[in-house]
């Protein structure tokens, strides 16, 4: 059941952003940025956590989920260490993803050759 929820919710989130791509002149970078910020906001006002509980990876894997991770991290850290937590919580919670992107990105550059599109 969890798999079906993940598929449907993840699919819907992606299909909705496809409308933004096709119907507006927004570039991918702008859409992604908006999604992360939106993820933070939705988590802050308490809407996103129930969606994560319902859909699991369907809600955490899209970039909205990255915003969710950041916001949840901040919330926990602020509860533990106050204002300092506002600065450390987000990046700490997202550290795995960010470091992995840097590391695997570098590895890709070192191991592969640029190639033509056809």
């Amino acid at each position: 059941m969890q798999y079906i929820n993940a598929f449907v919710v993840g699919g819907i989130i992606c299909a909705l952003s496809q409308i933004l791509i096709d119907k507006t002149k927004l570039t991918p970078a702008r859409i992604l940025t908006a999604y992360v910020v939106l993820g933070v906001i939705l988590t802050a006002i308490g809407i996103y956590k129930p969606l994560v509980d319902f859909a699991g990876a369907g809600a955490t894997v899209p970039l909205l989920g990255f915003g969710y991770t950041l916001a949840e991290g901040v919330k926990t850290a602020v509860a533990e260490s106050g204002l300092l937590g506002a600065f450390t919580g987000g990046a700490k919670a997202a550290a795995g993803g960010i470091s992995a992107a840097v590391f695997f990105g570098l590895l890709t550059a070192l191991l592969f050759r640029p190639a033509d599109k056809s």
Binding site: P28, P114, A115
Partner: peptide
């Protein structure tokens, strides 16, 4: 050249844009 123009004006070739 497709590849030189693309990386100058748009995105890297391996980037998944539509």
């Amino acid at each position: 050249h497709f590849c030189t123009a693309e990386r100058q004006y748009r995105f890297p070739l391996a980037y998944g844009g539509q």
